[in-house]
């Protein structure tokens, strides 16, 4: 399946580690889909399943995000630089409800609420890991 250009969502992207890796990642496992690896362009989506949605609850932040399941692909584009990465859904997250109202800005324009979590491989393709958050547009 190829990444598309139809607008799906916008918000904050954060990053997380998964798979058999060093440090705090060691206990993370391969995610809800059983395929997640930090070194691949993968992502976590808040509405991967009903059980996932119960944990992340983006709706509590006004984000009625649609269901997308394991293996779905999306383009994630940095709001300001235009850098884009194509990712495959492999886990449930981020916990949107815990950070309602949080905003990340660039060039004076802000995106609000955590809507997607990227692996280090994917996040570093469009931004710096040390920033922790990026404002992004998501396409499918």
């Amino acid at each position: 399946m190829a990444c598309g250009s139809t607008s799906l969502w916008a918000g904050e992207a954060t990053w997380f580690c998964c798979g058999n890796a060093w440090g705090s990642c060691g206990s993370a496992g391969t995610g809800a889909c059983g395929t997640c690896q930090s070194s691949k362009h993968m992502a976590a989506w808040p509405n991967l399943s009903a059980a996932c949605y119960d944990i992340t609850r983006p709706d509590l932040c006004g984000e009625g995000m649609p269901r997308r399941t394991c293996g779905a692909v999306m383009n994630v584009k940095h709001q300001c630089s235009g850098a884009t990465v194509c990712v495959t859904l492999a886990d449930c997250g981020p916990r949107t409800k815990s950070f309602c109202g949080e905003a990340t800005c660039c060039n004076g324009a802000c995106r609000t609420n955590r809507v997607i979590d990227l692996t280090p491989s994917a996040f570093s393709a469009i931004g710096s890991l040390s920033s922790g958050k990026l404002p992004v547009y998501i396409y499918e």
């Binding site: 070194s39 630089s81 850098a83 491989s121 393709a125």
Partner: peptide
């Protein structure tokens, strides 16, 4: 990354490493 990223030279493939 503060400035808009210039187009990457497509003749030079990007790489990522973890370990």
């Amino acid at each position: 990354f503060a400035e808009p990223m210039p187009s990457l030279d497509t003749a030079i493939p990007a790489a990522f490493a973890e370990g």
